[in-house]
Simulated scan of single mutants.
Amino acid sequence: MGADLAGMEKMAGEHAELKQAHGDDRRVAELAARIIESLSSPDFSFPLRDEALVSEGTTTYVYEGGVAYPKLYDFLSEILHSPVPIVVNEVKFGPGEIIVGAGEKDMADAELRSAVKELQKLVHGKKAKATQ
């Protein structure tokens, strides 16, 4: 079972709206902390479809239900100071799909697991700054 990305997407949207409107700073920090804690959780995993598309040396994973998470990725882009898609090792994390630079599913699965752990570390490392 994957994480509640829909809930994080909603919180990221509220975070962006409050921040843009110079709203309640405490609420902005609280939302940032909740998103970061969810993403940093040891049991976090992206809710991805079981099947993946392997083509021309890459493997593409799509989120369950074909859903996209643009507000969540805008939040991640902001705290990580990185454009979307967010690149970690050979993995491009994007709002609608995750692309792994490996043309074999088993290798791509392993690379994805490793990159998710690295992404979690990067996000967790930004917690203090994002929640000020």
Rank of each mutant, 00 (worst) to 15 (best):
1 M>I: 10
1 M>R: 10
1 M>S: 10
3 A>S: 13
4 D>A: 02
7 G>K: 03
7 G>E: 10
11 M>G: 07
12 A>Q: 05
13 G>A: 08
16 A>N: 10
17 E>H: 10
18 L>G: 03
19 K>N: 14
20 Q>D: 15
22 H>W: 12
22 H>M: 12
24 D>R: 03
26 R>S: 09
30 E>F: 06
33 A>F: 07
33 A>P: 00
35 I>F: 05
35 I>L: 09
35 I>G: 03
36 I>S: 04
37 E>L: 03
38 S>C: 06
39 L>H: 08
40 S>K: 08
41 S>H: 15
41 S>L: 09
43 D>S: 12
45 S>L: 11
46 F>L: 15
47 P>Y: 10
48 L>T: 09
49 R>H: 09
54 V>G: 08
54 V>Y: 05
55 S>K: 14
56 E>K: 10
56 E>C: 04
57 G>D: 09
58 T>E: 14
58 T>H: 11
58 T>N: 12
59 T>H: 05
61 Y>N: 04
62 V>F: 07
62 V>E: 07
63 Y>I: 11
64 E>Y: 01
67 V>D: 05
69 Y>R: 01
70 P>R: 02
70 P>K: 01
71 K>P: 01
71 K>T: 06
72 L>G: 00
72 L>T: 03
73 Y>P: 03
74 D>M: 02
74 D>A: 10
77 S>H: 05
81 H>V: 14
83 P>F: 04
84 V>A: 09
86 I>H: 01
90 E>W: 02
90 E>K: 04
91 V>H: 02
93 F>P: 00
94 G>C: 01
95 P>V: 00
98 I>G: 00
100 V>P: 02
101 G>Q: 06
102 A>Y: 13
106 D>S: 13
108 A>Q: 07
114 S>W: 05
115 A>H: 03
117 K>E: 15
117 K>C: 08
118 E>T: 12
120 Q>A: 12
120 Q>N: 11
121 K>F: 11
121 K>R: 15
121 K>I: 11
124 H>E: 14
129 K>Y: 14
130 A>N: 12
130 A>T: 13
131 T>F: 06
131 T>G: 07
